[in-house]
């Protein structure tokens, strides 16, 4: 186990009530070995988790001295943290959330291929990962030949609705050479983006083989620290042909291309001051996301706006000019 993991034993460094009273994913349920200790970090503190013998129930607790891989009886653990199992992941909280987790209606459809595409650690903040996920503008440059290609780089005007509960970006259209593993040709792909949680985002994109349905791909971020995230890649696909392994491989190929971009962004925490970084049209959902976090009063893993802006904040994006 890394020195850095044991240095912050048990006690979270986070004092932000908005972040504390929230649910976070810590692992795919199937990746937890019953009876053995697994360790990770959440909001700067070390937590341990296991499944009870027989595997029925996940148990999560603030880490004591137990080592990763040691045997443990989950039923006998004191100071258990609240647990939810949803979308195939174990979620926990260090606070007392007054709300339950969001829903994804498509998960109830019988033919959906639902799995964890991989839980990958990235040296960036959770909001940076969310913002990158929302951005179509990088497709031709980072996912060249797959999710985008030059010269078709234009992000067309799209709609963003914001409520207290979530951000919804609709009518997002982008030309994609290979929109999904099941795609055989380039196509204009329609996306819907949804942010129902400060550190969780999902996209709905048209299924190449069935235009009436949408694949759902989500990024559930576990904020290990303010500048380190474990990104759980959730897949809920319509695909009767490709194997689970092939679907995971495609998702990891895409996320593996994003990773070095995310790790080279500076600062790692997301600045919420509207003057901090210059927006362009493609950033309309990003601007909404930053404002939404500001309105929630979130301070963890962001650089909060320090003073009220002297002038009204810029309009999210110009209307389509062409």
């Amino acid at each position: 186990m890394a020195v850095s993991d044991t240095a912050t034993m048990g006690t979270p460094s986070c004092t932000d009530p908005v972040a504390l009273h929230e649910w976070y994913p810590i692992s795919a349920l199937v990746e937890i070995t019953p009876g053995l200790v697994h360790r990770t970090q959440l909001l700067g503190g070390a937590i341990s988790y296991t499944r009870t013998p027989g595997g029925s129930r996940p148990v999560v607790w603030p880490s004591g001295g137990e080592a990763s891989g040691a045997e443990v009886d989950g039923l006998a653990v004191d100071h258990q943290l609240p647990v939810r199992v949803k979308f195939g992941y174990v979620w926990t909280t260090l606070g007392r959330p007054e709300h339950e987790l969001f829903d994804i209606a498509e998960c109830d459809e019988a033919d959906r291929r639902i799995q964890n595409g991989g839980s990958i650690m990235v040296a960036t903040s959770a909001p940076r990962a969310i913002e990158n996920f929302l951005d179509m503008g990088h497709f031709p440059y980072v996912h060249t030949g797959i999710l985008g290609a030059e010269p078709r780089t234009e992000v067309l005007e799209y709609d963003v609705e914001v409520t207290d509960e979530e951000i919804l970006a609709t009518r997002c259209l982008f030309f994609q050479p290979q929109a999904a593993l099941s795609a055989s040709d380039g196509q204009m792909t329609e996306y819907v983006y949804r942010v129902p949680h400060p550190y969780c985002v999902m996209l709905y994109k048209s299924v190449p083989t069935d235009a009436s349905r949408m694949d759902v791909i989500a990024l559930f971020c576990q904020p290990m620290t303010e500048e380190r995230v474990r990104a759980h890649n959730f897949l809920c696909m319509v695909d009767a042909v490709n194997s689970d392994t092939a679907l995971k491989r495609f998702q990891q190929l895409i996320f593996g291309q994003d990773k070095p971009i995310l790790e080279n962004q500076s600062p790692r925490r997301l600045p919420l001051d509207p003057r901090a970084e210059t927006p362009i049209r493609a950033d309309k959902s990003s601007i909404s996301y930053r404002r939404w976090l500001s309105a929630k009063g979130l301070t963890y893993a962001v650089i909060p706006a320090t003073a009220p802006s002297p002038t009204p904040a810029p309009t999210p994006a110009p209307t389509r000019s062409s």
Binding site: M1, A2, V3, S4, T40, S68, G69, S119, I120, M121, V122, A123, R230, K259
Partner: peptide
């Protein structure tokens, strides 16, 4: 592998 996938190596 340690930093990305959580392999239990002694990172230092």
């Amino acid at each position: 592998l340690h930093d990305t996938l959580g392999y239990p190596f002694d990172i230092d």
